[in-house]
């Protein structure tokens, strides 16, 4: 396999991040929002990996493992919150849970 240029990796990561961000902003379903956050995290991870490959350092991959671990923790907490949200509001609409306003 030939060498993939670093720019390609970074552009892909940027596209994925924007995709995730747009998903986070436009979806109202909490589960989809969590998914979007996952995409953004992975985009950041991809950027780490691409940068690590550029400098021939293992650090990028090490960081990605950290990101994965963190993402797992985030999802477990997030899903627990989603369950509670559903029990409370009987809906998964994030805009319905706006009681913190006051």
């Amino acid at each position: 396999m030939g060498q993939i240029p670093t720019e390609h990796g970074l552009i892909l990561a940027g596209l994925l991040f924007i995709l995730g961000l747009v998903g986070l902003l436009v979806r109202r379903n909490v589960i989809f929002m969590l998914l979007a956050v996952e995409i953004m995290l992975n985009a950041a991870g991809l950027a780490f990996v691409a940068a690590g490959a550029r400098w021939n350092q293992p650090d990028g991959q090490v960081m990605f493992i950290f990101v994965l671990t963190m993402a797992a923790a985030e999802v477990s907490v997030g899903l627990a919150l989603v369950l509670l949200l559903y029990q409370e509001f009987k809906t998964l609409d994030a805009d319905a849970a706006s009681r913190l306003r006051d």
């Binding site: 902003l25 929002m33 994030a94 805009d95 849970a97 706006s98």
Partner: peptide, 10 residues
Amino acid sequence: QTGKIRWYAA
């Protein structure tokens, strides 16, 4: 402070 999480994210 709208309480809408998507606004915050934006």
